[in-house]
Design a protein around this nucleic acid. Structure first.
Lengths: 202, 202
DNA sequence: GTCAGATTGGCAGCGACTGCCAAGTAACGA
DNA sequence: TCGTTACTTGGCAGTCGCTGCCAATCTGAC
């Protein structure tokens, strides 16, 4: 039970589960607040645990790593991504398919402000960036079987080409979000995404 | 003096420097051997220091982090990259310019086998991958001022477009090296790079 | 030979993270 | 209502990467 129960499918809603969810939210909010106030690296697990009113040991049971405190629900991200991309018409263009996936995960943020703060922390903290990039690699591999069949098999091995295409899409998302944060959240991220992709595929 | 002196430019060649270089090589070789034998995560700094005959403290003075023990000389990488790209003709195509940079840094490995082993470790170890990706981001930012002037300023802000283009090149390098390792070092990495880029820019 | 400056190793400590064990508490049956 | 059971919690010690500090040692120059 490393993950906080997904809200939606027949929640058992016993007192236990409700308490767990409450504690989970409390920890998450405390963490985001402290990260925002004093920076990610400057905030220790001990401090988050103290202010959230739980022990370090318990905090690590809810969230396996410090990064998870900012990353949100990684499984949900993965699922939305694969569901969206897997649900695209079989004859759709690969780039349109990936674009739909990117748009879907962007819609996962609770609010404009939350998105901006997360992206801001992400792009300004080395350790977080590294962690995100590593998770990103995992997502890219998940997408591989969904994207490969959409490539022309006659043009040689599809695996490296699919990897390159997928990674490029994520790269454009990263550059877009970085630019978006630098512009203080003005404009639409997807427009920036399109601009980046156009620059690459020009 | 965090960095082992570059061999080449008028080495002072005092006993000190020679001893330092020797110790440096000894540590580096011990580390690579242990990483190869038992894996990166399974090898502790204590073990490397013990087998290399130095204290942990000294090891950390030579190499600031565990990753540096595999990554080789990061400053050299950066310099070769920027020199090569900066030295390309002003009217050359951006993609050709970046291709030249990629080829130059690939030539930095001592041997085919060393390259393969490094890439193998890199692509099979999560912590190393994350570290590389983070360093990569740094290199990409270094390249920004060299690439931006080569883009059409009339088509809007060049910064995000340059970032996207540079990151795509590195992405193709990563996918190419991954594929190369999977193929057990058969073929030429640059061919794989070209194939990846073609898939993206198709 | 001696002195200044650099290098080295040991030690204590920090922060993320884990395993283990005892104490506490919700849920369920008798 | 009272256990009994199953799960959660917190504390403690320990690992590993990494850093600061200090004393011992060594090198090169005078």
């Amino acid at each position: 039970m490393e993950q906080h129960a997904a809200t939606g499918t027949g929640a058992p809603s016993t007192l236990w589960h409700r308490t767990r969810q409450l504690a989970s939210r409390e920890i998450l909010e405390t963490a985001l607040r402290l990260f925002t106030e004093q920076g990610y690296d400057e905030t220790t697990i001990a401090q988050i645990a103290r202010e959230a009113g739980v022990s370090q040991r318990t905090l690590f049971r809810y969230f396996g790593t410090k990064e998870d405190l900012l990353g949100g629900d990684q499984d949900r991200f993965r699922q939305v991504l694969t569901d969206t991309i897997g649900g695209q018409p079989a004859d759709a263009d690969v780039w349109d398919v990936l674009r739909a996936g990117v748009a879907a995960v962007l819609a996962l943020h609770d609010s404009h402000e939350q998105a901006r703060e997360r992206f801001r922390l992400l792009h300004s903290t080395a350790s977080l960036r590294a962690g995100w990039l590593e998770k990103r690699l995992g997502f890219q591999e998940d997408l591989l079987p969904l994207v490969e069949p959409r490539l022309d098999a006659a043009a040689g091995s599809t695996t490296p080409r699919a990897r390159a295409v997928i990674a490029t899409a994520f790269t454009c998302l990263d550059v877009a979000s970085m630019t978006w944060v630098a512009d203080d959240g003005a404009g639409d991220i997807m427009d920036l995404y399109d601009a980046c992709l156009a620059a690459v595929r020009g």
